[in-house]
């Protein structure tokens, strides 16, 4: 048996002119695996950065509702579900790819898990604190189709009159009502009376953006219980982000 297998193998190699696969082929494959791994960690970091950004934005909004617990329930709809779902996918794929690297099997699953968790957290925070999440949200993703539907969006959140949340620009102001243009261009008649609460910082003048909490009473008619300033969410203490390509 012994000699036969050896002889036949050599014969086959020579007859079929089989040759060792070139070194660069293996190197390329190796680099591709590492590229895939780092790519996924990077995407995971971006997703986490955006998630932090959205959560903090949403958190600020929620904090404003501490006196209105009945409205807090509405917030679950605005959680950035898309990014929440994407992060574990990137994490899992990065984990699998790392195990596929040449020496990935030397490390225990727990160690890889913790290492990835640390890398995602570090990168996610770095991206958030360097304001790159904000930049990506404002400058890159915002114009993409359906992006607003899958991310936390303040305008989308304040375009839910059926939930008692309405936002937009003041068009005209009367003594007990105002006309407001929402973010899809619909004009609303917003009624209010002396019981309506108003934050001190609100300036009720045309062209000013405001948020209104209240009730939709009729088609394009909204009864205001409270009016708040719009106060642009993005990086209030640091000023607006500048898009590099604009």
């Amino acid at each position: 048996m012994k000699k036969q297998v050896i002889e036949e193998t050599l014969k086959k190699i020579k007859q079929e002119k089989i040759e060792p696969t070139p070194k660069w082929h293996f190197l390329l494959k190796n680099y591709a695996v590492w590229l895939g791994f780092f790519g996924l960690v990077f995407l995971g970091g971006i997703s986490l950065g955006l998630l932090i950004y959205f959560f903090l934005g949403l958190g600020r909004e929620m904090a404003d509702f501490s006196d209105r617990p009945q409205h807090l329930f509405a917030f679950w709809r605005f959680l950035p579900h898309f990014w929440l779902a994407l992060i574990p996918i990137f994490f899992f794929l990065a984990f699998l790819i790392f195990r596929k690297t040449k020496n990935g099997y030397h490390y225990d699953n727990l160690l890889i898990f913790l290492g990835l968790l640390f890398s995602f957290a570090l990168l996610g925070n770095a991206i958030y604190f360097s304001r790159n999440s904000e930049m990506m949200d404002d400058c890159i993703f915002r114009d993409m189709p359906y992006y607003k539907d899958i991310s936390y969006d303040k305008e989308r959140m304040w375009s839910r009159p059926e939930l008692g949340l309405l936002g937009g620009k003041i068009i005209k102001l009367e003594e007990d009502n105002l006309n407001l243009e929402d973010f899809v261009g619909t004009i609303w008649l917003v009624k209010f009376d002396e019981d309506m609460r108003m934050r001190r910082r609100v300036s009720l003048t045309p062209d000013v953006l405001i948020k209104i909490i209240g009730q939709k009473t009729d088609e394009n008619v909204f009864e205001a219980e409270e009016i708040r300033p719009w106060e642009k969410r993005k990086g209030a203490p640091m000023g607006p982000v500048v898009c590099p390509m604009h």
Binding site: M1, Q4, V5, I6, E8, T9, K12, I13, I18, E19, P20, T21, P22, K23, H25, F26
Partner: peptide, 22 residues
């Protein structure tokens, strides 16, 4: 079986040869 193992062994050796650079 013995024959199957010999076939597998031959394929293994060819694989080894092809992957020498790895």
């Amino acid at each position: 079986s013995k024959e199957d193992i010999e076939d597998i062994l031959q394929e293994v050796f060819i694989k080894v040869y092809k992957n020498l650079n790895d």
